[in-house]
Design a protein around this nucleic acid. Structure first.
Lengths: 173, 173
DNA sequence: ATCAAATTATTTGTGTTCGAACTATTTAAA
DNA sequence: TTTAAATAGTTCGAACACAAATAATTTGAT
């Protein structure tokens, strides 16, 4: 008899993400910044001064989104913008002294927590998990399959919620 | 020498979530609804008529958020609100005929894709993944640890971005 | 019966998110 | 050289997301 682990795995995945969200929330309530703001600040500390586009891609957000986040960080005087002299299209972001100091003193409890949890698992299996997830990802990234192929009457899937309500995703509407 | 898989695993996790996001996006562009709207619609199909609070908790969103989503679904005439007769505080949501038909004919490509990818992996390891993720989740849900404990000067963690920029998480600001 | 506390949904305010349209600048091609 | 195409950032609009405050109703304690 085949056991279906995929729903269970997806559920765990989603819950882990929600758990991460909560941790992040905890973190952000200790500073006075939102998570995306902290992420950008941290990335600037790690990478040094960077144009907006580069920051956007290293934090996996659109330029439009980062523009807004930087607006607010600039208001708080944690970051400042400078036009690049070599390419005047670019806007280079740097941490202010205040911003750098804040970013430097930031703990990253989620990461620590995750590492602690992970390291207490059977170490011979950790690599397997890592490999499997990478494998899975690679396959999920594979060429797209057809969408909306059938319109059968009773196609109601019985098993539970797989879709994450996360993120935006507007359509024309 | 100890190899640190935790960063790698977190990265994979994050990328899987992004991949899921993309799939969901594909899906939503085929209907005319956003993901949260689809999720709510689907949940109503599965559960039947429900007050807003119950729907909110089954899709893991706040009542405030669901209120807005339902506003838009009501505009599209896919859902309607009714005051409960037994408890007039409650607003019971039902699918309209149009909404039910749409929800019924909805394919769930992400789930299929994920299942296909997963089933092609070494089947003896699938259960291990499942167990490990559950284990991991359980440990991450364990009692909270201290936040913002130290303020040392050079506490900059060198390794990469772990925090997901996902979701809201406002503070006073 | 009365009234405080709890519950249910909505409103309000701030912030995140992205696509698309727009401006400015640089690059490349004719 | 002159101009078309590509690139960088911003702006705009729509939808999410949630905490806090509010309004309506029910429950529970006295």
């Amino acid at each position: 008899m085949e056991t279906d682990y995929s729903s269970s795995i997806l559920l765990s995945l989603r819950q882990i993400i929600r758990s991460i969200d909560r941790h992040n929330k905890q973190l952000s309530s200790s500073s006075n910044l939102t998570i995306p703001q902290l992420v950008c600040l941290r990335q600037l500390l790690i990478d040094g001064p960077r144009p907006i586009g580069e920051l956007a891609s290293s934090v996996c957000l659109s330029k439009a989104t980062v523009t807004g986040i930087i607006d607010r960080l600039e208001n708080k005087e944690l970051v400042h913008r400078d036009r690049s002299t070599t390419d005047r299209r670019k806007v280079v972001l740097s941490l202010t002294e205040k911003g750098a100091s804040l970013a430097k003193n930031m703990p990253w409890p989620l990461q620590e927590r995750f590492k602690v949890s992970l390291s207490s698992l059977d170490s011979t299996n950790i690599k397997l998990i890592d490999d499997t997830l990478k494998n899975l990802l690679e396959m999920m990234e594979a060429p797209a399959i057809e969408i909306w192929p059938y319109g059968g009457e009773d196609a109601v899937p019985v098993d539970a919620e797989i879709i994450l309500p996360g993120r935006d995703t507007k359509t024309k509407a």
